[in-house]
């Protein structure tokens, strides 16, 4: 019974183009059934953001996305007051009796993504993307939302979620997250996929790709990941490479052609020199 639920999730995600393994499916199943946020960590480009998007699409729920960055605060993530509108309202009421509290109502409130997600019905999938890029203060602010699914607005009181959104947080681990935040979440480590799964992903993303070429691409990408590069290629890089090579596959794939396309998978000058030093023959065995 429990296994069939996992298989259902795999099939559901497969329908929207996301190739999930049992661990990913189990994580989504637990996050939904236990009503807990899911923290997804892993290297860049392995499909963390796509997982949330696929979850929303597969379940027919809207997606609310909050992209985190340094300096993000509650006025950009949670809510803000519409000050121009308040001023206009105050001016309009200049000659009548004006109650200050009348401009601190929902009418004058600007809802930002987090508050939007709490007040939407049906509940959306809330994606808090690259949460480690935000400051520690923002992390502390998230605790109330992730733990209680509620927000305190001093002028209006506590706003509780109409229905609990499914929350997915992603992190590339460029900074360590606090224990308090981790405690409130379930955890999924999304690593580079296995050979079979990466093959399946490539064939879903690039249907015209020949099987032999896909195998070579996957083997080369795995080789690159073992070379201790500064930016090891993720799945998105291998899809880009597969798309490019698929278009060039009509003719013979020469070393020169491969060199042109290396920019799809190698992203820094140092990594490029590492690849040149090790030699293309080691990467692309014919």
């Amino acid at each position: 019974m429990a296994e069939s639920l996992i298989d259902e999730w795999i099939a559901r995600l497969d329908q929207v183009g996301y190739v999930a393994d049992t661990q990913v499916a189990a994580a989504l199943h637990l996050a939904v059934s236990l009503d807990r946020p899911l923290l997804v960590e892993g290297p860049a480009g392995v499909g963390k953001t796509l997982l949330a998007q696929s979850l929303a699409t597969s379940c027919g729920r809207p997606l609310v996305r909050l992209q985190c960055y340094e300096g993000l605060d509650s006025t950009k993530a949670l809510y803000d007051w519409n000050y121009p509108k308040q001023l206009l309202a105050a001016r309009a009421a200049a000659h009548t009796e004006f109650d200050t509290h009348s401009v601190y109502t929902w009418e004058f409130l600007l809802e930002r993504p987090l508050l939007q997600a709490l007040r939407m019905d049906p509940a959306p999938v809330l994606l808090i993307d690259e949460v480690e890029r935000a400051d520690e203060e923002f992390e502390a602010m998230l605790l109330e939302i992730l733990g209680e699914f509620q927000v305190s607005i001093p002028e209006l009181g506590t706003v509780e979620a109409l229905a609990h959104p499914w929350v997915i947080l992603t992190s590339n681990r460029s900074r360590d997250l606090s224990d308090a935040l981790r405690r409130r979440c379930l955890y999924l480590w999304l690593d580079y996929p296995s050979v079979d799964r990466e093959m399946a992903i490539l064939q879903r993303a690039v249907p015209d790709l020949e099987s032999s070429l896909a195998q070579q691409i996957v083997a080369a990408i795995r080789e690159l990941r073992g070379w201790n590069l500064l930016k090891p290629p993720g799945v998105s890089e291998s899809i880009d490479w597969a798309r490019t090579l698929s278009q060039l596959a009509a003719g013979p794939l020469t070393d020169e052609t491969l060199n042109w396309t290396l920019g799809c998978v190698v992203k820094t000058r140092e990594d490029l020199s590492t690849v040149e030093r090790n030699g293309l023959a080691l990467l692309w065995r014919r």
Binding site: Q23, R173, L186
Partner: peptide
């Protein structure tokens, strides 16, 4: 194994604990 897969999602909080 099926239990371990689910409990890992619940108990682990860092990549090291996951591993």
């Amino acid at each position: 194994e099926a239990i371990a897969m689910r409990w890992r999602i619940i108990y682990a909080k860092t990549p090291q604990q996951w591993a």
